[in-house]
Design a protein around this nucleic acid. Structure first.
Lengths: 201, 201
DNA sequence: ACAATAATCTTGACACTGTCAAGACTCTGT
DNA sequence: ACAGAGTCTTGACAGTGTCAAGATTATTGT
């Protein structure tokens, strides 16, 4: 009879374990620490085992990105829910969730935000990526459309927060001691955002 | 006597050749195509030769980034020089140079923009990176400072163009057929930029 | 219940990578 | 001319992703 206390031949939930190991490796040692073999080792499994759950490294990355997107969406939504029920406060909260997630999950966020999306070619972005994207869209919805529709507002906010996050990650935004700190609310305040006359819900 | 037509033992300008090969590899096959051994092969030299010119792969990358920054600064300056002598036109031109460079040198730009800068720790960013950064600063100079000084304007513009470029590179901005194209001028127009009353030169 | 099949994991191999050490070649300055 | 510095080659090593073959376990059909 099989000894249940000893290591069983089947892991049980290797796929999940590999994703978790991968995220941990990412956040501990950055992009270059994410390795199929290290994930396998962390899960206590041989180096070729992951191949049966993901199509190579690319497959594992895709799964990790999808998982990350779920966490990302959660982080933003949580901030939004804590904010005042007022469009600008909620938009800022969304952005703070965006940045906060990137800071707290540096390696993971780097991986996520540097994935070429299949948005155009396959028209099928990851499920959780869509959830995250919709949070951004919804946060922008209460504001007046630009001359070319709502996309202008969305892209402006997205570009601004993504750029700020990116510069932050690349340590190009100095958190200086001398001059007053420039935080994201200062940048957001520079955007010409007008709320639509009527609150919709 | 040495036969000059045959391959000489000394390359002549290996350092330069490696940088050029590296940039070509980057723009042809993206980040994962940049390899010390491939650069060496492209320069017709053994796999360990590069070590005498750069401190490993990291050193080659640093040199390539520095070279890229020079090209980047050129691209922006060229656009600025072609623009009307008017602050907003020049700012937009700078941004178009920024984006244009990233599009024309996809792999190189990706590498450059994803390098963690030593701006804070070593206080010494690459020489050419400073040149490029100063072009951005100068382009923002004619506009009124935010409540916290000129940094707000700089970071707003930088974040916006960097974010837009990044999203573009990641194919997250759809160049759609149905809805009117959102280009960067639309986003820049959303920024609250007021020129200072007096033109300074 | 039991055999066939599928799923899961291991082992071993391969090509490719960066890096190092040792040595061979070539140029330069004196 | 010669010594030394600079430049490049060769060979080796540990990691890496990926594949193929096989061993082990779970599931399914009858």
């Amino acid at each position: 009879m099989p000894n249940k206390t000893a290591k069983p031949h089947h892991h049980g939930d290797l796929r999940e374990a590999l994703i978790k190991s991968g995220i941990q490796l990412l956040n501990e040692g950055g992009m270059n620490s994410l390795t199929l073999r290290k994930c396998a080792a962390a899960a206590g499994v041989s180096h070729a085992a992951p191949a049966h759950h993901f199509s190579g490294l690319q497959g594992l990355v895709a799964a990790i990105v999808d998982r990350g997107m779920a966490m990302f969406a959660c982080a933003m939504q949580k901030k939004i829910d804590q904010a005042d029920n007022e469009p600008m406060a909620r938009l800022l909260a969304m952005c703070e969730g965006y940045l906060g997630f990137a800071i707290e999950n540096e390696g993971l966020a780097y991986l996520m935000f540097n994935q070429k999306s299949d948005f155009i070619e396959k028209k099928v972005p990851g499920r959780n990526a869509s959830v995250a994207f919709n949070i951004l869209v919804d946060s922008c919805a209460p504001f007046k459309d630009g001359p070319k529709g709502p996309l202008v507002t969305q892209y402006a906010v997205w570009s601004l927060i993504q750029g700020y996050t990116h510069l932050f990650q690349m340590s190009q935004i100095k958190v200086d001691q001398a001059c007053p700190t420039v935080d994201f609310s200062d940048l957001l305040a520079m955007l010409n955002l007008e709320e639509t006359s009527a609150y919709r819900c």
